[in-house]
Design a binder for these strands. Structure first.
Length: 255
DNA sequence: CGGCCAATGCAATTTACGTCA
DNA sequence: TATGACGTAAATTGCATTGGC
């Protein structure tokens, strides 16, 4: 175990005659030769361990929720700075009548809560963006199909009027084999006809507090771990998109 | 430059409180 | 009123990272 994690300084335990049992692998403390559970209730400490500077107005013995006033000030501070410098932490703790460690824990948990909420918001935005893209894509697909039918119909008409057989490779009006139109030409959105609007997603990703990866692969909202949070989602969406395109192109080429 | 140590952060988990049926 | 289930805040644990020595 790591003593820094404890709300109470181990030296205080030591001074109070409490030593960590070397045999218990951290599961108990020794107090004046008597073994006691290590997991003490937060305030359930012997009176001599009670920090004189710490007085939240409650008697020791219970883990108390922070008062609305304490939470308000903590929230206000979190709004301004979501990580505290040691001096600021001490200052705030004093102001609130809390242990600096309690303030640190509160900020830790608050960051975790913020991250969870942020991930939920990001997910919703991503989902909405995906739905829009999907809808646009479906429209384009439909339009492509209509245009293709039109081209074939006109080509056949032209061939008939020229007395040419309609069987064989399917050529468009310019004599280009329709089946040879490359997947690349279609997927590149060439000809400037692409309707897909990527600005929403770009704005989302580049707008700041988000766990979505930026174009350079970084994330502004979180630490190094967070860049992978949505990579799977992007990957899955990309794969699905490719599959859809292959399916559509296959239909185009083979029909 | 690499090893050690302390400080700090985060994810995962546990504990305990408050609420509600 | 008691109580059990449940959600969540507070706290702990273990590991990773960073910076100073």
């Amino acid at each position: 175990m790591d003593s820094r994690h404890l709300l109470f300084d181990p030296s205080a335990y030591h001074q109070a005659g409490m030593l960590r049992s070397p045999l218990s692998r951290g599961s108990t403390w020794m107090m004046r030769g008597e073994e006691i559970p290590r997991r003490l209730p937060f305030f359930g400490l012997p009176e001599e361990l009670y920090d004189d500077e710490f007085d939240d107005g409650h008697s020791p013995g219970k883990k108390r929720r922070l008062t609305p006033e304490q939470v308000y000030l903590l929230e206000e501070t979190f709004e301004a700075e979501n990580k505290l410098k040691p001096e600021r932490k001490s200052e705030l703790a004093k102001k609130l009548g809390l242990q600096p460690r309690q303030v640190a824990v509160w900020f830790q948990n608050r960051r975790a809560r913020w991250k969870t909420k942020q991930l939920e918001r990001d997910f919703d935005l991503l989902k909405a963006s995906y739905n829009t893209l999907r809808s646009n894509y479906d429209s384009i697909l439909k339009e492509n199909n209509n245009l293709k039918s039109e081209v074939l119909s006109l080509t056949e008409k032209l061939q008939r009027s020229n007395g040419l057989p309609t069987a064989g490779p399917k050529m468009d009006l310019l004599g280009v084999d329709v089946g040879l139109i490359s997947a690349q030409q279609l997927s590149s959105g060439g000809g400037g006809s692409a309707v897909v609007n990527e600005s929403n997603l770009s704005n989302l990703v580049n707008s700041g507090d988000s766990y979505l990866p930026n174009h350079d692969g970084s994330c502004r909202g979180g630490d190094d771990h967070s860049q992978s949070y949505f990579s799977d989602v992007f990957l899955a969406a990309e794969q699905q998109h490719q599959e859809d395109q292959e399916e559509a192109l296959g239909w185009w080429v083979w029909s």
